[in-house]
């Protein structure tokens, strides 16, 4: 089962099971902290202590302003489309 999960992870581009992987998604945005996280400069955080600030979060490609914009835009478009589809199919049936 675990081997299956590992295989699926690889297919889906999940992060490898080391401590600091950020997934293939994150590869581009990590340049600034890479040196701090990998290689000889590897450091240890005490459990429970936050590793990075929100600055790190916003440097991720999946947390860029573009992503926030499309989530907001698509949510509005999809909700309106759902309402439209329901209304049209209801009218059609009543006819």
């Amino acid at each position: 089962m675990t081997a299956g999960l590992l295989a699926l992870m690889l297919v889906l581009g999940q992060s490898p099971p080391d401590g600091h992987g950020h997934g293939t998604d994150d590869a581009h945005g990590d340049a600034a902290i890479d040196s701090a996280e990998f290689g000889s400069d590897r450091h240890l955080h005490p459990p429970g202590e936050e590793n990075h600030g929100t600055e790190w979060f916003f440097s991720q490609p999946w947390a860029t302003p573009e992503r926030w914009r499309f989530m907001a835009r698509d949510s509005v478009v999809l909700a309106s489309a759902a309402a439209g589809i329901l209304m049209l199919s209801g009218l059609r049936r009543r006819k």
Partner: peptide
Amino acid sequence: DPVAHRIP
């Protein structure tokens, strides 16, 4: 990733 790395 952020959850695993305890990133807010």
